[in-house]
């Protein structure tokens, strides 16, 4: 059996810290995936915090068609019929408010961290 001494404990702690540190670093660099459901004429959730490179998928669960379209006009899911979905990768220009072109009272926001 390997003898446990102070030096071995120190090496183990440093190794564990390094692995944990790597995982934390990877958590910020590995793209995440988010889903926004369109249900009962609402974006759910209506606010989302994301990083550049993440992916957002809008899923239309209503009977009628919707869009998710940037107020500034720089991105658009285009028309999503009932049960259709569209995924977009987050880019720098996607921060801010968006809405449904067909039902302009439907609004959501994207915040890039």
């Amino acid at each position: 059996m390997q003898k446990i001494n102070r030096r071995n404990l120190l090496i183990s702690s440093v190794a564990a810290y390094t692995v944990t540190g790597l995982n934390l670093a990877q958590a910020h660099t590995t793209p995440a995936e988010y889903t926004i459901n369109i249900r009962k004429f609402k974006f759910e959730p209506d606010h989302i915090d994301v990083h550049i490179g993440d992916t957002i998928t809008w899923v239309n669960q209503d009977l009628v068609a919707h869009t998710a379209t940037a107020e500034a006009g720089d991105w658009d899911t285009e028309m999503l019929e009932k049960s259709q979905s569209k995924s977009l990768q987050v880019t720098k220009g996607m921060t801010g408010e968006y809405f449904c072109v067909f039902h302009p009272h439907m609004k959501g926001t994207i915040n890039i961290k």
Binding site: L63, V64, A65, K82, V101, F102, H103
Partner: peptide, 17 residues
Amino acid sequence: HDFAKTMIRDHTAVNEQ
């Protein structure tokens, strides 16, 4: 025009259902 197009699209979808 935008509103009218939405009415055609949505009411047609409801009728189809």
